[in-house]
């Protein structure tokens, strides 16, 4: 599974992603959801105003499959 992750606003400074758009390769399986990535990305669910999956608004319990582009928008900044 290929997951591209972009963060905006203050998340560029506080998350593990930083300024660059990162594309990571993850093992398939496990019904990975958006929420399952947050801890590793050092992002608190409470600070996320909106998450987009392939350009469309998604929920934290949306399952990730195949090639996906995730964008996190913070509540502030």
């Amino acid at each position: 599974m290929r997951v591209t992750i972009t963060v905006h606003g203050h998340l560029r400074h506080t998350s593990s992603v930083g300024h660059d758009e990162l594309t990571v390769t993850l093992p398939d399986g496990g019904s990975l959801r958006v929420r399952d990535l947050l801890g590793t990305l050092n992002i608190l669910e409470e600070e996320v105003k909106e998450v987009n999956l392939n350009g469309r608004r998604a929920r934290m319990d949306t399952t990730l499959r195949g090639r996906v582009h995730l964008e996190f928008f913070p509540r502030q900044g």
């Binding site: 599974m1 997951v3 593990s16 992603v17 930083g18 660059d20 990162l22 990571v24 390769t25 993850l26 093992p27 399986g29 496990g30 019904s31 990975l32 399952d36 990535l37 801890g39 590793t40 990305l41």
Partner: peptide, 28 residues
């Protein structure tokens, strides 16, 4: 991969953490 979802999930999270760590320490 172990034959249960929890193990698959942990494997994905470990893989992500490993790639992020290597990125921050070596490529950033």
């Amino acid at each position: 991969l172990l034959p249960d979802h929890a193990a698959d999930l942990r494997a994905a999270q470990r893989s992500l953490a490993r790639q992020l760590r290597a990125y921050r320490h070596e490529y950033q």
